[in-house]
């Protein structure tokens, strides 16, 4: 065993970078679930489609990685807005079981579609050269790619913070989350807010799927495979609580990394033990204020 300091930096660096990928993928679901109370289990499908678009345009048309990510986000936003009008609009206010069945069904359609068009195997991404290799951080070598993921995660955090706290759309969104009927009464077009928020949420999933593809390989079963992790983050965040979800995602990343590193045989369970304990103690979410 190397020194405790080296182990600690490993856990922090890798845990944070892993957590931030989870954050980017999950945050969209935190937003849409908090806002629309729709249990969208097909959220991971948007991440998968985003990843497939990014890798697809890179390998087939030689488009550079940054543009491919933009194309993925744009494509998924467009797709999700159409789907919102055609499918999800029918789920608002529907019983939870209907929502679950419908969105799980969408997952299976996406899994089948990806298998037909791209084959049952992993859809490999080749990252650009400037994102491969290691960089010396002084304390230890660290992957350039993971640094990039951390940076992207922070950009998303800051971007969302500005949008929610500093723009009038953010104010409307917060109002709609807190009290949709009151928001309607004062003349805000809640439906429009819903569409935009749904588009943003799905776009963020696509962003996570595309830039996270180096860590979470793309495969047809992607929508199901990472669903549990996404739901852990969502459950611990509480409805629509974006600040909490950042902390939760990073916590999940660190706990999972530390668990697997320190006690590998039980590493897979530790995150679930933490989940169970926290859900018992704080069922409303980790940082949610308790109702008086």
């Amino acid at each position: 065993m190397a020194s405790a300091a080296s182990s600690l930096t490993f856990i922090l660096l890798y845990g944070v970078s892993y957590g931030l990928v989870l954050f980017i993928i999950s945050i969209g679901l935190v937003i849409t679930m908090g806002l629309m109370r729709v249990m969208n289990l097909a959220h991971g499908a948007f991440a998968a489609i985003g990843g497939y678009i990014a890798v697809g345009v890179m390998t087939n048309f030689g488009i550079p990685f940054p543009l491919a990510v933009v194309a993925a986000v744009a494509g998924v936003v467009a797709l999700s807005v159409v789907l919102e009008r055609l499918v999800f609009v029918n789920l608002y206010g529907a019983p939870e079981l209907d929502q679950v069945l419908m969105t799980i069904g969408i997952n299976f359609i996406v899994i089948g579609g990806l298998t037909i068009f791209f084959g049952p195997n992993v859809y490999p991404i080749s990252l650009p050269d400037y994102l491969t290799g290691n960089v010396d951080l002084g304390i230890r070598n660290f992957e350039v790619y993971r640094l990039f993921v951390i940076a992207m995660g922070l950009i998303v955090v800051v971007g969302l913070w500005i949008m929610f706290e500093k723009t009038s759309f953010g104010a409307k969104l917060r109002a709609a989350v807190d009290n949709p009927s009151m928001t309607r009464v004062i003349g805000i077009n809640v439906n429009r807010v819903f569409i935009i928020a749904f588009g943003i949420g799905s776009g963020l999933a696509a962003l996570g799927g595309a830039i996270g593809a180096g860590m979470l390989p793309l495969e047809p079963y992607y929508p199901m495979k990472y669903l549990v992790l996404v739901l852990v983050v969502v459950a611990l965040s509480g409805f629509g609580n974006m600040r909490a979800s950042l902390a939760v995602a990073v916590l999940v990343g660190i706990v999972d990394t530390a668990g697997r590193f320190l006690v590998p045989s039980f590493g897979g369970f530790i995150i679930y033990i933490v989940l169970v304990v926290l859900m018992v103690l704080r069922p409303e979410g980790l940082f949610t204020k308790r109702a008086a």
Binding site: M1, Y18, Y226, G267
Partner: peptide, 20 residues
Amino acid sequence: SDNIPLSTVDFSPFAERIAE
């Protein structure tokens, strides 16, 4: 010797253990 859980997504903890 490590048994790597099938649920593992990020394998870097195991690579780190091997490297050490």
